[in-house]
Every structure is written in structure tokens, then in C-alpha cells.
């Protein structure tokens, strides 16, 4: 029942009088699509409904090997033009090899993000934020911690469209750098979380560089590869884990659909190639007069 807090939040925000809408993560002519394994640098009105991931985890000292399925939900809302909040949660199913399946909700996560700087001619965005994992709101059997954590984070995005590099102009890079601080320092280490994405925007190629007459299905694609790592930096927090996720994002006017492979980057990560998919809605385009505009 506690998950029903999503419903009154959506209802209240939908009734608040709107201001100017802003539909995508934009810096000048550059649209940064939502990435699947790392957060994008912009503050927007958007929702990922859902993000689905399936990976295989190896056995540990405490747990058998398992196939993990995650169903995640995220909703981001602008308070002002540059300040936004986000809420995310997910449901996990662990099919344990040789043991019973476990399933349950993970801890709720809140994010506060502020877009510090935008340089439109140079297609650059920089933001700062803080994430808060609320401990004890998920099921410990599937790995949700009883204690919470706080993660201050830096975000950036840079398109290469301002450079005289011809067909390389559609490239863009986004990144995140977060430092996770657990509430109970004797139970978990501090963790340095890093993320990087490399994107090539075919819509940008068609609109800004050269119109190749690509069919719409192809011309709206953004090939992307994402890199995400978790690096314990204090205590005996275990090994570094990470993933490399190449895939495609189809960017429509009001939504996008993404599909990526999830490849383990370290021996301590998932043991085989998994998959992640997402349906993402741009609320600024879908609901410009209600959820798609800042509150103030």
C-alpha cells in the first residue's frame, strides 16, 4: 500500500497551475536523450514507465547464483525552470539457482537536481544534485538495505555540434560523478559512482549536418554506449562493479524507447550479458499545461 503514494503525488502536481514548458533535455540545438543505466544531466518533466532489466548474478558467500529481473519506475518534476525533484522505485524478482525465488520492492529513491549552467552555442549542460535512498522501505530479502544513503552528484552533457568536424558533430557525451555516503558507516563503505555515455544522434545529423533522407524509423535513432561503475573507497567494501551497455534509443516527439545490452565490466559484476529496456515519456510534450511545466 505504501507504493500508492505515487497516485496522490501525480494528482496534486497535475492540478497545479503551469508555467512555460520544456520538453526535452536541451542545450541549443542538442537534445540529450534519457540514458538507461546512468542519469542524464538535465532537469525535466519526464517519466520512465517502466525500465525493465534482466541480468544474471554469480554466487556469493551468502547467496546462490540468480537471474535478476527488475521493473523500475521513475517520475521527475520541475519545481522551477532549473530545479527538479525525482522519485524512483522498483520491484525485483530473484530466481535463485537451486533455491526458492525471492521478490519484493527495493528502497525508494529521491533526487533533487539543479541545472547550474547551460551554454546553448556550445551544447553544454552542467547540473548538481543529491540523491537520497530511504532505507527500510524495501524488502531486505532482495537486497534492500535497512539503512539509507545520501549521494551528492555532479552531472554534465556536451554535444560536439559546435566543432567543425563534419559527420562527427552529432556525437555527444554525458557523465555523472556521485559519492555515496551510507547512514551507517560501519555497515557499508562509501562508494564512488561514475557514469559516462557516448551518443551519436541521427536526428541531429539529419537536422543540423546533412539530410541523408533516412526513413523516419532510422532517422530518429540514437546509438549509445553507457559505462557505469561503483567503486567502494572505504573499509572492506568489496570489489569494483560496473557495466558497459551498448544499444539504441528511438526518440519520438513525446516519448522514447531504449534497448541496450548490459555487459559486465568487471569480474565482480553480473556474470553474463543482460538486457535493459525503457519506455520514457517527455511530459513537457505530452502534458504542457499540467505535468509538463514547472510548478513556479
Amino acid at each position: 500500500m505504501r507504493r500508492l503514494f505515487f497516485i496522490p503525488i501525480l494528482a496534486v502536481l497535475g492540478l497545479v497551475p503551469p508555467r512555460a514548458a520544456h520538453s526535452h533535455a536541451e542545450a541549443g540545438a542538442r537534445l540529450f536523450p534519457a540514458t538507461l543505466t546512468i542519469d542524464d544531466p538535465a532537469v525535466e518533466d519526464e517519466a520512465s514507465l517502466p525500465t525493465v532489466m534482466r541480468i544474471r548474478n554469480g554466487a556469493t558467500d551468502d547467496n546462490p547464483a540468480n537471474r535478476e529481473s527488475d521493473l523500475n519506475f521513475e517520475f521527475d518534476k520541475r519545481i522551477t525552470e532549473r530545479l527538479g525533484i525525482g522519485i524512483s522505485d522498483g520491484y525485483t524478482i530473484l530466481d535463485q539457482i537451486g533455491d526458492k525465488s525471492l521478490q519484493g520492492w527495493r528502497n525508494v529513491n529521491l533526487t533533487l537536481k539543479y541545472q547550474v549552467y547551460v551554454n546553448e552555442p556550445h551544447e553544454f549542460i552542467a547540473s548538481v544534485g543529491v540523491g537520497r535512498e530511504i532505507g527500510g522501505t524495501g524488502k531486505t530479502a532482495i537486497g534492500a538495505d535497512r539503512y539509507g544513503s545520501t549521494t551528492p552528484t555532479l552531472y554534465f552533457g556536451k554535444g560536439l555540434g559546435d566543432l567543425p568536424i563534419g559527420y562527427f558533430r552529432p556525437f555527444a557525451i554525458t557523465g555523472t560523478l556521485g559519492y555515496q555516503l551510507p547512514d551507517q558507516t560501519n555497515a557499508a563503505p562509501n562508494v564512488l559512482n561514475t557514469g559516462l555515455s557516448l551518443q551519436y544522434s541521427l536526428p541531429y545529423l539529419q537536422e543540423q549536418v546533412v539530410d541523408l533522407g533516412l526513413p523516419e524509423l532510422v532517422g530518429n535513432l540514437v546509438p549509445v554506449v553507457e559505462f557505469a561503475t561503483k567503486n567502494p573507497v572505504t573499509g572492506n567494501g568489496g570489489a569494483r562493479t560496473g557495466t558497459i551497455s551498448p544499444g539504441l534509443v528511438y526518440t519520438g516527439d513525446t516519448y522514447q524507447v531504449g534497448l541496450e545490452a548490459v555487459i559486465p565490466a568487471t569480474s565482480a559484476s553480473n556474470t553474463s550479458v543482460g538486457v535493459i529496456g525503457q519506455i520514457h515519456f517527455f511530459l513537457g510534450d505530452l502534458m504542457p499545461k499540467t505535468l509538463g511545466k514547472p510548478l513556479f
Partner: peptide
């Protein structure tokens, strides 16, 4: 609940993007 909000909020208004030009982009 999300679908209901989408329904009662009115029609979608995607922001205009350039789809084609004459002379074409980069032509």
C-alpha cells in the same frame, strides 16, 4: 493513475522539430 493523468490533461503538444528543408540540410 498515470494513464488517467495523461487522459485528463488534454492533447499532446510536441514541440516542433525540423523534419525537412529545401534546399536540404547540407545539400
Amino acid at each position: 493513475a498515470v494513464l488517467l493523468c495523461l487522459t485528463i490533461s488534454g492533447h499532446a503538444e510536441a514541440h516542433a522539430r525540423l523534419k525537412a528543408a529545401i534546399p536540404a540540410v547540407g545539400a
